[in-house]
Design a protein around this nucleic acid. Structure first.
Lengths: 341, 341
DNA sequence: TATCACCGGGACATTTTAAGTCCCGATCAA
DNA sequence: TTGATCGGGACTTAAAATGTCCCGGTGATA
């Protein structure tokens, strides 16, 4: 039966949304009955006319009847409501989670995919697929898209496909090499995305962990300057959110550095910045690339992070209030919400 | 699982229909891939633009991808298709049955509800509910609706509800008393329908089984004349279809009459006419009311009959080719179709 | 390798449907 | 009896769906 629900969501995503609205409507009526159109519209935060159409449909289905006193659920409507109760979680669970996260984190749009990336590898693919869809929706002509590294963003890259609009788009790596595996580095991903979509791309050839003098020298390089300029104009930023300690280890930080990060309470990492639970920057890796202030200037910041292990990191980074869209999974979402209850 | 679909269908009446269409679309693509929009539209008997919207949705769901060569199912799409296969029978069974009946009986619209009225009493209620919905859809201002007796039509009456359009509608009994229980007689039902919908109604006070002279006298009565006139102008006819022998018994025909009906091969009854398997009139009760020729002049004839015991009768009456809508049940439908295979 | 039919995506006019808004007589509660 | 609220109607406006044609490009075929 569960499988049927999943099939429906694949094949009828639009209808599931409608189903959800109708269910909520029934539930509201159940709660407020007898209630009139206008009162109900106000209570549900919708308009009178739009509600009217729905009510007429439900009336024709025999789920409610109307009288001069207002609307009441019919016996059948009550029954439908009762029988749907246990299915609601499955049918709409993810949407519900998303809405709760929107409120909790203050992010305009949150999308939750099924599963837990910590447990099931395919969930990361699903995150990427959904994030790719979001990107295709928000991308515009002549956009500059800043891209970080990491497995989440890599998964996004895998699921991009060509579209005409991408012809004028530029993908720009947000950072140089960060001692990670090549296939997860921003440079690689930017070029992959460009190849898949028909966009153009740039590379930022800056080795990781430079001495301050070398850094200054490189910053003056023509090529580097150009890329940095582009980054500052980025309209879209694609990035993952990392757990601070895991990221530090993956980047081969020394034991001492890691200890220092722990002492400072670092829980999340993004763009080379480490943040504590309150969202304060506790450390900043001295490399060249996209700066936090650039991210905040960007119009669309698309974050991708899944798995319950990322929950704290997601919460921490959300304090920056710079995200527009968060694509996450059930594992992270439930962990976040249960911690706050 | 079945219950889930039923629940959803109450809230989303065309869920199954849409699901069916999308499934067929996927299947067609699977079969014809790679195929372009225009080719596919032609193959599926739809238009390019409408197909395009569907394709875009499925593409966004990741079930298919498009290339310059045409569309192909994605791995996921193939998977969805495979997994739906075993569900198709159950999901679309009734729709399929309805379509097959449309072809077999030559009736423009056939609706099949779940169950078998012979076995489950509630199926008759469902028949009535669906038929009532159909009536509400087809009724227009100033309509004259001819109504026969019987339990099927009674069930329709129970499920009617008020609507503004009914204020100008007149319900007219198709026949006078027919020695049945009062609550199943046309007069009763016409008044019931009027009461429930806010329509007006007429009564036909003609006793059953009159001597020919008395019949002639009554026919000249002012009141009777008026009702007969209305019947002749009926735009909508609501009627059940009876099994010939059962009907004869219920109406207290004599043993001799029943034997005669059997001998003549009567299998169905409607409007006081008895028909054989070929659809020929083998007997006509000498009472006043709606004539078969009036039925054939009506724009909409809505037949209601369920239960496998009615299968033969339905087939027989369909030969009259006067029906526009048939509401029946699974029991009758399967019986009809298996007999013809 | 040249040709050509077919492909997807775009554009746009037109139709259809949804939605916003206000009104009215009926009905119920105070 | 009064007054607020109800459902349903009517009408305008906004938005979405649809029909239709075009274009540059791709892939198969000759």
């Amino acid at each position: 039966m569960r499988r049927l629900v999943e099939l429906q969501q694949k094949l009828l995503p639009d209808l599931v949304q409608v189903l959800r609205e109708r269910y909520m409507l029934l539930r509201s009526i159940d709660h407020l009955q007898p209630i009139g159109r206008r009162g109900l519209a106000q209570a549900m935060g919708t308009t009178e006319r739009i509600l009217r159409a729905e009510v007429e449909l439900l009336k024709d289905s025999g789920l409610l009847h109307v009288s001069a006193a207002g609307m009441n659920l019919s016996v059948e409507g009550q029954q439908v409501l009762d029988e749907m109760e246990p299915l609601v979680g499955e049918l709409f669970g993810l949407t519900d989670l998303a809405e709760q996260l929107q409120r909790l984190l203050g992010i305009p749009e949150v999308i939750v995919v099924q599963g837990n990336a910590d447990q099931s590898p395919w969930v990361k693919e699903e995150l990427g697929r959904v994030a790719a869809r979001v990107l295709k929706q928000i991308v515009q002509e002549n956009d500059i898209v800043a891209v970080t590294g990491g497995s989440s963003v890599a998964s996004l890259a895998h699921h991009l496909s060509a579209a005409p609009v991408f012809k004028t788009v530029q993908f720009v790596p947000a950072r140089g090499g960060l001692s990670e595996r090549a296939e997860l580095q921003a440079n690689t991903l930017a070029s992959q995305m460009a190849a898949r979509t028909g966009a153009s791309y740039h590379l930022l050839h800056v080795p990781d962990r430079l001495q301050p003098e070398a850094l200054q020298t490189l910053k003056k390089e023509q090529q580097v300057q150009e890329v940095l300029n582009l980054l500052r104009q980025a309209r879209i930023v694609l990035h993952g959110i990392g757990d601070a300690i895991s990221m530090a280890k993956r980047r081969n930080h020394s034991e001492a550095e890691i200890a220092e990060l722990q002492e400072k309470g670092a829980v999340s990492e993004a763009f080379g910045y480490y943040f504590n639970e309150a969202g304060e920057t506790v450390h900043h890796m001295p490399t060249i690339g996209l700066q936090l202030e650039d991210v905040k200037k960007a119009e669309s910041v698309l974050s991708i992070a899944g798995g319950e292990s990322k929950a704290k990191a997601i919460l921490s980074f959300a304090k920056q209030s710079c995200q527009n869209v968060l694509v996450t999974d059930e594992g992270a979402a439930r962990s976040l919400l249960s911690a706050r209850l």
